[in-house]
C-alpha cells in the first residue's frame, strides 16, 4: 500500500503541492487527474523519490526517503512522460535496461515487446521510432523491471506518467489492459491520466488534483461529479451514465467563465 501524509512540495520559492494526503492500494489502479499544471507530474516525482518534499510517503510500509535506490528499483518501476535517448541503442537493448542489475535473456524482452504490440521491433533503433512507439518501448522496459514477483513477496508497483497520451485508441486500450492485468496479478498502479473517459473505464480509484491540493479521492463514480469536475477544470462538464453501469463525460459547450 502507498500511503502519503501531509505531502508538501516546494520548487524554488513556489509551493507546487500543499499538504496532500492520499492512499493507493495494491491490486488497484489509482489514477491522478487534474488540469494541466495542477502538479500531477510533480506529485509522481515526489512519490518516486525524485523531488525532495515535506511529509511522509510510505510504500509497502517503508518510508521511501529511507529506502535504498536498489531496493526501490526491485519493487517499483517508473514510466516518465517522455524519454529521449542520446545514443543509438536498439529497442532490445533499451528493454533489457529494465533489468540492468539482474540476469535476463532476450526472450523476456521479446515477450514484453509483444505484450505492448511491438513484436519484431527488437532490431530497430530507438531514436528512429515514433513518439507513441518510443513510449511503448519504455513501457516494455518498465514491465520487465517488475513483471516477476519479488523474492520476499512484497508487492510491486508501477508509477506511470501519462502512459497513453501519445497513443491511438486501439493501443490505449491495449496498454490499459496490460496495466489492469498487472493490477489483477497483485501489483499496485499509480498513473497520471488526462483522458477522463478512459480513467472512468479503467481506474479503481481517482485522485482529483486541483489548485495544489487533492480536491477529492474516491471511486470514479464518487469523484466524477458534475460540480467537482467543473470547478476543478474551470469549464462546465456533465457526467452521463451509459447502460450497464458505464460512465462517460461530455464537456458542455458553454465555458464556466461565460
Amino acid at each position: 500500500m502507498l500511503n502519503v501524509r501531509n505531502l508538501t512540495v516546494n520548487l524554488g520559492r513556489q509551493t507546487i503541492l500543499e499538504n496532500l494526503t492520499l492512499t493507493a492500494q495494491v491490486g488497484q489502479i489509482t489514477a491522478v487527474v487534474g488540469p494541466s499544471g495542477a502538479g500531477k507530474s510533480t506529485l509522481l516525482a515526489a512519490l518516486t523519490g525524485d523531488l525532495s518534499f515535506d511529509g511522509s510517503v510510505t510504500l509497502n510500509g517503508h518510508d521511501i526517503a529511507r529506502t535504498s535506490t536498489t531496493r526501490l528499483a526491485e519493487i517499483r518501476a517508473v514510466l516518465p512522460q517522455a524519454t529521449p535517448m542520446s545514443f543509438p541503442f536498439t529497442v532490445l537493448e533499451v528493454v533489457r535496461m529494465g533489468r540492468i542489475h539482474k540476469t535476463m535473456n532476450n526472450r523476456m524482452a521479446s515477450e514484453a515487446l509483444t505484450r505492448v504490440g511491438l513484436h519484431g521491433f527488437e532490431g530497430r533503433f530507438y531514436q528512429e521510432l515514433s513518439g507513441g512507439e518510443q513510449q511503448r518501448v519504455q513501457l516494455a522496459r518498465v514491465l520487465v523491471q517488475v513483471w516477476e514477483p519479488v523474492a520476499q513477496g512484497s508487492s510491486r508497483w508501477l508509477f506511470l506518467d501519462e502512459p497513453v497520451s501519445s497513443l491511438d485508441i486501439g493501443h490505449q486500450l491495449q496498454v490499459m489492459r496490460i496495466i489492469q492485468d498487472f493490477a489483477v496479478r497483485g501489483g499496485g498502479v499509480v498513473m497520471v491520466m488526462h483522458d477522463l473517459n478512459l480513467t472512468a473505464m479503467c481506474a479503481d480509484s481517482v485522485i482529483l488534483l486541483s489548485n495544489k491540493m487533492v480536491m477529492h479521492q474516491g471511486s470514479p463514480r464518487d469523484t466524477f461529479r458534475d460540480d467537482l469536475l467543473s470547478s476543478a477544470y474551470g469549464c462546465k462538464i456533465a457526467v452521463n451514465r451509459a447502460p450497464e453501469d458505464g460512465m462517460f463525460l461530455l464537456p458542455q459547450v458553454a465555458c464556466a467563465a461565460s
Partner: peptide, 21 residues
Amino acid sequence: AKGLNGLTLGEAAAGHIGIRV
C-alpha cells in the same frame, strides 16, 4: 559500464532502475 548505459535514459530514470546516480 552498466551505470553509464542506464544513464542514457536520463538521471531520474537511471535512479529508478536502481543505479546510484
